Computed example of a mutant assay.
Amino acid sequence: MVDPVIEIEVVYAAVDRQVLRSLSVPQGTTVREAVLKSGIGGEFPELDLSDCPLGIFGKVVVDPQARLIQTGDRIEIYRPLLADPKEVRRLRAAKAAEAKARNQ
C-alpha cells in the first residue's frame, strides 16, 4: 500500500533573493526532513539545514525533528540575525536619553 502524500511549501529568503518550493512528501514526514528533501540546500550551500531554525507560517517550530507536517504547511527557513533586536532597541533608547539630556 502506498503512503498518502501531502502538499507543502518550503521557503527561504536570502538577502538578495527568495526561493519557494512546492513539493509532495509522504504523510509522517517531519519538518526537518521536508526541508532536507526540498533541495534548497543545494542552492544555498552556506545554510546548515540540519541545524537552522525553522517555522511554519511565522511561528517557530521548537522541535523540527519531531513535528510532523500537515497538508498546506509553509515551512520557513530562518537566517541568523545580524543584530539582536533587544540590543538595538537598548542602544537606541540610550542614545535618545543622552540626546535629551544634552538638550535640557
Rank of each mutant, 00 (worst) to 15 (best):
G58V: 06
E9I: 14
A34N: 11
E33H: 14
V31R: 00
K37R: 14
K86R: 13
L47T: 08
K59V: 05
R89K: 10
G72R: 07
E9R: 14
P45N: 15
G55T: 08
A99E: 03
A99I: 13
P53F: 09
V35E: 02
G55P: 09
G55V: 07
A97L: 09
G41V: 02
T30V: 04
L23G: 03
P80C: 06
G72D: 02
R90W: 04
V2D: 15
D73V: 10
K100V: 01
D3R: 13
C52M: 05
I56D: 04
A94Y: 07
N103W: 15
M1F: 12
A14I: 01
P64R: 08
K59W: 02
G28H: 11
D51W: 04
G41W: 00
Q65E: 11
C52V: 05
L54R: 03
P4K: 04
L20W: 11
D16W: 11
I69T: 02
P4I: 09
V2M: 15
V19S: 09
F57A: 11
R79W: 04
P45K: 04
V60A: 09
P26M: 12
K59A: 13
P45L: 08
P53M: 00
S50N: 03
V15M: 09
V60F: 12
D51H: 10
Q65N: 12
K86I: 07
I40D: 10
K100P: 05
D48S: 07
A13Y: 04
